[in-house]
Amino acid sequence: MTWYSWLAIASLAICLAGCIYHLIRLIKLGKPKDYSRKSGSPGSGIIYSFTGAMNPVNKESAYLNLPTYIAGVIYHMGTFLAIILFFVFFFTTTLNKMITLPLVLFLFLSAIFGTGILFKRVTDKKLKQLSNPDDYISNMLVTGFQAATGIVLLIPDASYPVYMVIASLLLLYLPVGKLKHAIYFFAARYHIGYFYGWRNVWPAAKHSR
C-alpha cells in the first residue's frame, strides 16, 4: 500500500475515534430528564424535528434566505457524495464514463457554492463578526475535498496522492473543529424535538397556525 493510503486510513481511524468519543459522551450524559407531566409525545416531536420542522416552508432561516439555503443544501449533498466516493476510491478511481461526468459536474457545482458561502462569510459584516478561523478552515477543507474528489474522477493517477492528503487533513480536523456538527446536529435536533414534543408544541400540524 502507498504512503498516502496509509495516511488516509490512519486519519480515518483517528476521525472515527474522535467521533465515537463525542457519541459516547452524549450517550453517557443521557436522555433528557423532565419531571413535569408531559402533555404531548416526545417521540412524535423528535420525528417532526427531523421531518416537518426541517421543511424549508416551515423555517424562516430557509425561506427568508433562499439562495444561501439552496447553496447550503447543495454543498452538504456534495459533501455526502464526496464521502461516499472516498470509500469507493479505496477500490477503484475509474468509474463508468456515463456517471463520471455528472458526478464531476455536481462536485464542482457544490465546491463553487462552498466558495460562495466562504465569500459571503468574508464580505457580510454580520457573518464576519460571528465567524472564527475554525469556520474558514472548515469551509476550505470541505470545499477543497469536494473539488479534489472531482479532479480525481477526471485525472486519477496525477491527482490521487494530493487528494488523499486533503482527505486526511479533513478527517483529522473533523472531530475537533466546527465540522463535528455532523454529530451534534442530530443531538440538537433530538433535544428540541423531545422538548417541543413533551410540551405538545410539535408536531405543529396539530395546531392551527
Binding site: L29, E60, S61, T68, Y69, D124, L130, K178, H181, A188
Partner: peptide
C-alpha cells in the same frame, strides 16, 4: 454540571450561518 446531554448538544452545534438573524 450536566443533568443530561442537552447542554453539550446545544453548545456544540451552532455553525455560525447567521440565518437566525431575521427571526
Amino acid at each position: 454540571s450536566h443533568k443530561d446531554s442537552k447542554l453539550i448538544s446545544h453548545l456544540n452545534s451552532c455553525v455560525h450561518c447567521g440565518l437566525c438573524a431575521k427571526t
